[in-house]
Design a protein around this nucleic acid. Sequence first.
DNA 1: TCTGAATCCTAGCACTGCTAGACAATCTAG
DNA 2: CTAGATTGTCTAGCAGTGCTAGGATTCAGA
Lengths: 191, 191
Amino acid sequence: MPTQTRRERAREERRTLILRAARDLAESEGWDAVTTRRLAEAVDYSQPVLYGHFKNMDAIADAVALEGIAELTEVFRAARSSATDDTAGLRALAQAYLEYADQHPAVYEAMFVRRTDLQFGRSETPASLTDAFNEIRAVVEPFATDDPESLTEVFWSALHGIATLTHGRRLRSTHHQARLETLVSRFIGNK
Amino acid sequence: MPTQTRRERAREERRTLILRAARDLAESEGWDAVTTRRLAEAVDYSQPVLYGHFKNMDAIADAVALEGIAELTEVFRAARSSATDDTAGLRALAQAYLEYADQHPAVYEAMFVRRTDLQFGRSETPASLTDAFNEIRAVVEPFATDDPESLTEVFWSALHGIATLTHGRRLRSTHHQARLETLVSRFIGNK
DNA sequence: TCTGAATCCTAGCACTGCTAGACAATCTAG
DNA sequence: CTAGATTGTCTAGCAGTGCTAGGATTCAGA
């Protein structure tokens, strides 16, 4: 039935409209500003409509997070493919990571800071989550001596720490490049 | 006047009572559960009393954070003094850091995750903040080749990343020790 | 005991997430 | 084309939030 599919398409469009509005609002005014009323007003519907698409507000943030992870994975791929050797690959990914976090703080927060129901380490983990992790792993692995998984986790943690502490104004607002180089030098093994 | 001082002492006691209640509530049910009403009930006063001691709820969390930073600094000192050489010092501090974050997640969140008005890098930074940072710096410095400040920031970032990603269930729930050893090995320079 | 000051609480505002129930639009079947 | 069922949407409301104005109460000093 074409009627049904048209309806479904309209529904799908409205879903993305909501996500788009939520993301824009979060990026411009922070997640605290993303309330049901403001979001409903932004998409020109009443609040209950939101609950027809998402279980609750947290589910909206989770959906934005999933979108962001797919984006981030693409950013990683681009960074990796632009590099000519292993060291350049590591540096490019690190730089790309910190840039993404800096330019999309709200999406970054939804992905890696906010409390979320998304399962990261489990078997039901969405493929996109493991995809992103594997991209990091790919650039870290050449420098691993024994346990690439742990090394990847630690490298990611360092990037995450730099991103969040910087955003929270807990690190010096300068020396971005110095921190990046310091991090990279410690992971390529002091050559 | 002894009357005045007794009053002031009572005021001070109530202030610490509030902080104690806030901290306990946050640790047992999370910061979302620390509302003015519940907190007021816990200390057996009405909400407005809270505002006689703190500008707003965020100021209460900030006060808990300051307390925590003093605690953490002591933990650092103990870890450092228990170590016999530089490598052991680095490892001991890292271990102590992650243990503290794991055992006091709410205080940790107040210190390093929640949005805060506390100034970290500026001149008006409370001394306790720089004290804690300097403790980290002290164990990192022996392994610095050129820029100890940046190296300290990166080491702290890695610890912070591991702590928060672990708490948010974004890293494997196992391999704690492996991550710690991996981190330490990268900072002592692959000996 | 009386007076002025310090202290504390009740009540309320504007906001939050979320939902029940009324209403309107649309599709289906006769 | 119409009657009935199904969707879709909105209004209104609940229980909770941070925070505050203003009145009641207690207390200190004369």
